[in-house]
């Protein structure tokens, strides 16, 4: 399960929290699989249920990315990946954030188009134990089941996501919130259809889509900041993380007149002290270290602080 636990070394306590989070996500994947199966059985030809089902499929992405990242991100660096694999976390977070955004957009699109087209959802019956039962009742039962695991698991993820500075886990908690909210909306929608309100389902989905879309946009913005080597952001807002501010302030205090470049790679931070933010290697350094024709591409050469401290080795 853990090919590499070497790079970087993290405190015992964090190690434990990470294992706990992996277990949470494996449970999430398991329950998602059961939900997808149950929903598929009762889906029939209902467009509304199909939408809910596609959302459940999208929900696989964040937990899958989390487990993949936890498994991959601490593999030791090698010749081909000299920084290690921390960026797996950045990539996973970007994909998870996109999943949330796509889900919100899809919900809104389905809702608006079916309202505009005055789409009357048709839901028939199935034979169950010799009785004809309206499929809507079964759909409501399936949707009710689909709400329970996300409510519980989503709440359980909030704390570890803070402790581990884990954006994928945090996005997944948002996804779980979206899941149970769409579930409740779906139940209300089908209850509406039962009493003859054809528009109830689409309207309920539309209302939910706004909060999902908002979470999706926020997360994609944070993910883009990370991919663009932005200064580390807070878990669920585009604000600069207080820890990053503190590191920058401390480094500037120790190196008066310098600037600090700081970015995050997955859950880890990297800082470089430079003369100014526009600092780059001089022509001289380039000639010294550069590889001939490609020397213009070398813009930074950095020494790690700990290299100088013999006792830290």
């Amino acid at each position: 399960m853990h090919p590499g636990r070497t790079y970087p070394q993290i405190p015992e306590e964090k190690e434990k929290q990470l294992r706990h989070a992996v277990r949470l996500e494996l449970w999430t994947l398991f329950f998602l699989a059961t939900i997808v199966a149950v929903m598929y059985i009762v889906m029939g030809s209902s467009q509304a249920m199909k939408t809910a089902w596609i959302e459940d499929l999208l929900s696989f992405l964040p937990p899958a990315m989390f487990v993949l990242t936890a498994w991959f991100e601490r593999k030791a660096p090698n010749d081909k990946f000299s920084f290690g694999y921390h960026r797996v976390g950045s990539l996973g977070f970007f994909l998870a954030a996109c999943a949330l955004l796509v889900m919100g957009a899809y919900l809104l699109y389905e809702s608006v188009t079916s309202l505009l087209a005055a789409e009357h959802p048709t839901i028939g019956t199935v034979e169950l134990f010799g009785e004809r039962v309206w499929l809507g009742w079964l759909m409501m039962a399936a949707l009710a089941y689909s709400c329970i695991p996300p409510v519980i698991l989503g709440r359980m993820k909030k704390k570890p996501s803070q402790e581990l500075a884990d954006k994928i886990l945090n996005t997944d908690a948002d996804m779980n919130a979206a899941d149970w909210q769409t579930g409740v909306a779906g139940i209300l929608g089908i209850a509406g259809i039962a009493i003859g309100w054809w528009w109830a389902d689409a309207l309920a989905a539309g209302v939910i889509s706004f909060s999902v879309l908002k979470d999706g946009i926020t997360n994609v913005r944070i993910a883009l900041a990370e991919l663009l080597d932005g200064v580390p952001r807070e878990l669920s807002s585009d604000e600069i993380h207080p820890a990053a501010k503190a590191i920058r302030a401390e480094l500037q205090r120790r190196h008066p007149g310098s600037e600090v470049r700081i970015r995050e790679t997955g859950r880890y931070m990297r800082a470089v002290v430079v003369n100014s933010l526009e600092s780059q290697t001089t022509g001289e350094t380039r000639v010294q270290y550069g590889p001939g024709d490609d020397d213009w591409r070398l813009i930074e050469v950095a020494h790690s602080v700990d290299l100088g401290n013999a006792e830290k080795g």
């Binding site: 048709t122 839901i123 028939g124 019956t125 034979e127 259809i193 039962a194 003859g196």
Partner: peptide
């Protein structure tokens, strides 16, 4: 007719 779920349910029950 689309969305006439009551009628559809009556019909399928009768068909049974």
């Amino acid at each position: 007719r689309k969305g006439e779920n009551g009628f559809l349910t009556e019909m399928e029950t009768a068909m049974g």
